[in-house]
């Protein structure tokens, strides 16, 4: 028996390597243009998570966890909602109400417009992407054949 490398075949791995950054780019694009076109934090975040998912599928759990630091990912995930709340509170401080806009609204149809929506989209994208990935990772950790009969 030759020892089986974790993950899928070399074709998948190669394709994945090529395509991964495009997926990420696409996700980031959707997140950043959430206030201009369909999309936004949630959709972009899902695309980001799919990118991670590709790595997980192609290379297996061990590699992915080496490649990404699980602890850091978790911390990032936890701090994303805190950032969101922070923006909300900042709105309270400067805008008069929770989540009120306190940044310049900019010019219509420009990337840096619509005030606080863009940073919020980024935060949401971060949160959704990481959460989804972590959910899948957590589900992948289960081994149904293992377990304690009670």
């Amino acid at each position: 028996m030759r020892d089986v490398k974790p993950g899928l075949t070399v074709i998948v791995k190669t394709v994945n390597r090529l395509i991964l950054w495009m997926i990420f780019l696409y996700g980031i694009y959707i997140i950043l243009h959430g206030h201009l076109s369909p999309g936004g934090g949630f959709g972009g975040g899902v695309v980001l998570a799919l990118g991670f998912l590709g790595v997980l599928l192609a290379y297996g759990r061990g590699f992915s966890l080496n490649w990404l630091r699980l602890g850091t990912l978790r911390d990032l995930e936890y701090s994303a909602p805190l950032l969101f709340l922070g923006f909300g509170l900042a709105g309270m401080a400067w805008g008069g109400a929770f989540l009120a806009n306190f940044l310049s609204k900019g010019k219509l149809f420009a990337l840096l417009s619509s005030g606080v929506i863009l940073p919020l989209n980024i935060v949401i994208g971060l949160k959704v992407g990481l959460s989804l990935f972590l959910v899948v990772l957590a589900l992948a950790e289960f081994d149904p054949s293992q377990g304690d009969d009670e």
Partner: peptide, 9 residues
């Protein structure tokens, strides 16, 4: 909510 996400940090 803030406490919930601060706790694991």
């Amino acid at each position: 909510l803030a406490a919930a996400f601060l706790i694991p940090l």
